[in-house]
């Protein structure tokens, strides 16, 4: 994906260019939002709002190379906000990813449930690091914290998951 060539085309109103961008980003973005919010509908709303926000702000980007980082920064914040709103209005229902975890292999479902139980900031850090394969530096930029904070969150998340897994005798 060459954002430096693609973004000027999108700014010129080239729908095919937007289609390329959407195809390249949407699936991973959706699954990232799903893992952060835990809700199918909220994840779709997050992706929709993220694309709209980012595309409307393309002109403001100082460097098109920064688009991936900017995109995931918007995605993360949108996911947090919409997820928070859902909890307040009790909209978690059959769209909840947790309800689908029962269909996963037992080892994975227990570990996923432990990840889902982490607080939002820890869970987001885990998702960006393990699911999106982003570096500590990139995660720091996306979540707006120092690299040390990212490392600390990863450490805390691993520690909590280890405790839960040992308790569940995860490793047999």
């Amino acid at each position: 994906m060459d954002e430096e060539k693609l973004i000027p085309r999108i700014l010129d109103g080239d729908e095919a260019a937007f289609n390329e961008l959407y195809t390249a980003y949407s699936l991973k973005a959706y699954r990232t939002a799903l893992l952060i919010t835990g809700n199918v509908q909220t994840a779709e709303d997050t992706v929709q709002e993220t694309f709209v926000t980012c595309c409307r702000s393309l002109k403001k980007l100082k460097s098109y190379k920064a688009f991936p980082s900017y995109f995931y920064r918007v995605l993360t914040r949108t996911a947090w906000r919409l997820s928070s709103a859902d909890k307040r209005t009790d909209q978690l229902d059959e769209n909840s990813l947790a309800s689908a975890a029962a269909d996963m292999p037992k080892d994975y479902s227990e570990l996923y449930e432990a990840i889902a139980a982490l607080d939002t900031k820890l869970r987001t850090t885990v998702v960006l690091f393990y699911f999106n394969d982003l570096s500590v530096r990139d995660i720091a930029r996306i979540t707006g914290v120092l690299e040390g904070t990212v490392k600390s969150r990863l450490h805390n998340a691993r520690r909590k998951l280890s405790k839960i897994l040992e308790k569940e005798d995860y490793y047999g």
Binding site: Y30, R31, A43, L97
Partner: peptide, 14 residues
């Protein structure tokens, strides 16, 4: 952790 996250999300698409 990586496999659990992939397993949880892999069947979902927008």
């Amino acid at each position: 952790i990586k496999e659990a996250l992939n397993c949880a999300a892999e069947e979902y698409s927008p």
